[in-house]
Each structure stands twice: as structure tokens, then as C-alpha cells.
Design a protein around this nucleic acid. Structure first.
Length: 275
DNA sequence: AGGATAGCCTGCGGGC
DNA sequence: TGCCCGCAGGCTATCC
């Protein structure tokens, strides 16, 4: 389940193997994962990769001539580079293949997504992408300030858990890191935003940033399908303190962690450490 | 406004 | 061993 930092890690691992490479041929095996014009040209065929950019959980690949694609990994999506010598692993559910070529080597990038919650969007330019798809996404969670978080959500009647998952308010937090951040901040997920005090917003913003930073250092959370751009799994799942631990004891105080559905997401928290 | 619900989709693991 | 079912949650749409 890729969240912001898994996507950032994919971006960082793909960057060195993609920048400057020519997209020789694009094979679309399942056209319905593509939104917008879905010809090979729209998917960057014939172009040279100039830049990889991320906003929230979305990743854009931009060609020298301005063409851009935006990849959303959804729940189970993978964007992976395979060198020429590498064995082709897991060919099932591979929907798009970008065959790359240049003087150095051949190789390919593949988009694989068993459950197809993810997808690829095509744009004539980065401007087009930013004006349409990316204009609705809020500030990046990695650099969120408590003032902007409070400004965006302070008057809301929703629960803090549901608000943190709203990509328009804050881009990049999913279920795992929402629970982890609220544990670190000591705030119960069912708290209503408008009743959260300034010092708590401060703690929440700081916790969101620090949870994401620690997870980046660990290479992301490998649960089921997540791998980075080179196909390697992450290790942050070994540091989860509440996510997936409902019924077990709190690592801080020993009390039994509670679990319930909040905002239609399984939510876990410590009834003693979180107020 | 925002909560609840359903839908999209596959793989996995628990229970029997 | 094998089948059934519930669950995992990214997001969107619709209804209340």
C-alpha cells in the first residue's frame, strides 16, 4: 500500500536509471488502466525522460519534449525498472511496458497492478497535469506545517483520522501513517478537528513529518505488494507501533491497543497514550 | 458538510 | 487437502 514515502522512494530509485533514457517502444497490455489518450505516443514512446516528479502519492514522468504521464499506484501498484540481464519476474498483472534503449544498455520499466486501483494518466504537458489533476491535491505531508494544517482543518467537524486521509487537505498520508502519526502525537483518531487545540496541531504536524522521515530511512513499509523502483522491499513495517497491532499491547504503556472502523478504515490506537 | 455505503479488484489466510 | 469467505484499503460516486 504505497503512501507518499513509498512513492518518493520509487521516484528516487527510478531517477538514476530513467533520466536521459529514450523510450523505444511502449507495450500496452491493458488499455483500461490508462486514463486520457492511450496511444503509444501519449505514453511517451519516442521521447527521452527528462524528469521524475512527485506530488502526494502520485508520480509524474516528463519527457524532454514536454509530454507527461502521471502514475498512481493505488493499493497494489508497482512501477519497476528491469535491466536487460535481470530475469523477468512476476509477469502476471503487468499492464504497461516501456522498453528503453540508449548507448549504454537496454532495459524496461513496467507498471504492474494486480488489483488495478492504480492507473496511468496521460498529458500533453506538465502544465496540463498540474492544472487538472494536481491542482486538487493539498500540501505535501513531508513538509507540512502545523499552521497550514490548522488553517485547513481547524474549523472542520470531521474526525482527525478522516481529515488526515483527505488528499485535498494534506497530500500523501494513507491509513498506515495516519495511525502511526496520531499515536506519536498522542491524539485519538476519533477526535473532532474543531476541538483540537493548537499545541495538539503542533504535535500532529510534527508527528506526520517525523513518521514519514523515519519510514523513508527504512525504505518504506512492505506489506504485500510494495516494492521500490528496483523491485526491493522496504523494512518500516517492523517499526509500526499501532498499525496492524489491534489487540496487542501498547509498546509504550502496555495497555491493550483498541481497534475500530473510523472513516471506513481500520483504525488502531492506544486508549491510554492517546487523548 | 461530512458520514455511510457501495463499487472497483486480487490475493491471502483463517476456519472448517 | 481444499473450499469459502472476510479482509486488506487506494479512490470515487451517490445518497442522506
Amino acid at each position: 500500500m504505497p503512501e507518499l514515502l513509498e512513492v518518493e522512494h520509487v521516484r528516487r530509485t527510478l531517477e538514476p536509471v530513467l533520466i536521459g533514457r529514450r523510450v523505444a517502444r511502449v507495450v500496452v497490455r491493458r488499455a483500461d488502466v490508462v486514463e486520457g489518450p492511450r496511444g503509444a505516443h501519449d505514453l511517451l514512446e519516442g521521447g527521452v525522460v527528462r524528469e521524475l516528479r512527485r506530488k502526494g502519492k502520485q508520480l509524474a514522468i516528463i519527457a524532454e519534449d514536454g509530454r507527461a504521464i502521471c502514475v498512481h499506484l493505488g493499493m497494489t501498484g508497482q512501477l519497476r525498472y528491469e535491466g536487460d540481464e535481470q530475469p523477468r519476474e512476476e509477469r502476471n498483472h503487468v499492464h504497461i511496458i516501456w522498453n528503453l534503449a540508449d548507448a549504454r544498455a537496454d532495459g524496461r520499466m513496467v507498471f504492474r497492478d494486480p488489483r488495478r486501483f492504480g492507473g496511468v494518466w496521460t498529458f500533453g504537458s506538465l502544465d496540463e497535469l498540474e492544472e487538472s489533476r494536481w491542482s486538487a491535491i493539498g500540501p505535501d505531508a513531508l513538509m507540512i506545517e502545523s499552521a497550514e494544517l490548522q488553517e485547513a482543518l481547524g474549523a472542520s467537524r470531521r474526525t482527525i483520522k478522516s481529515a488526515l486521509l483527505d488528499q485535498r487537505a494534506l497530500a500523501g498520508v494513507g491509513n498506515i501513517y495516519a495511525d502511526e502519526a496520531l499515536f506519536e502525537a498522542g491524539v485519538r483518531p476519533a477526535r473532532v478537528c474543531r476541538r483540537i487545540r493548537s499545541e495538539e496541531w503542533e504535535r500532529i504536524a510534527r508527528a506526520v513529518r517525523s513518521v514519514l522521515e523515519r519510514a523513508i530511512a527504512a525504505g518504506g513499509s512492505s506489506i504485500r505488494d510494495y516494492v521500490d523502483g528496483l523491485g526491493d522491499a522496504g523494512a518500516f513495517q517492523f517499526q509500526h507501533r499501532v498499525y496492524g497491532r489491534g489487540g496487542e499491547s501498547c509498546l509504550r504503556c502496555g495497555k491493550r491497543l483498541r481497534s475500530a472502523s473510523i472513516a471506513q478504515r481500520t483504525t488502531t490506537w492506544c486508549p491510554r497514550c492517546q487523548r
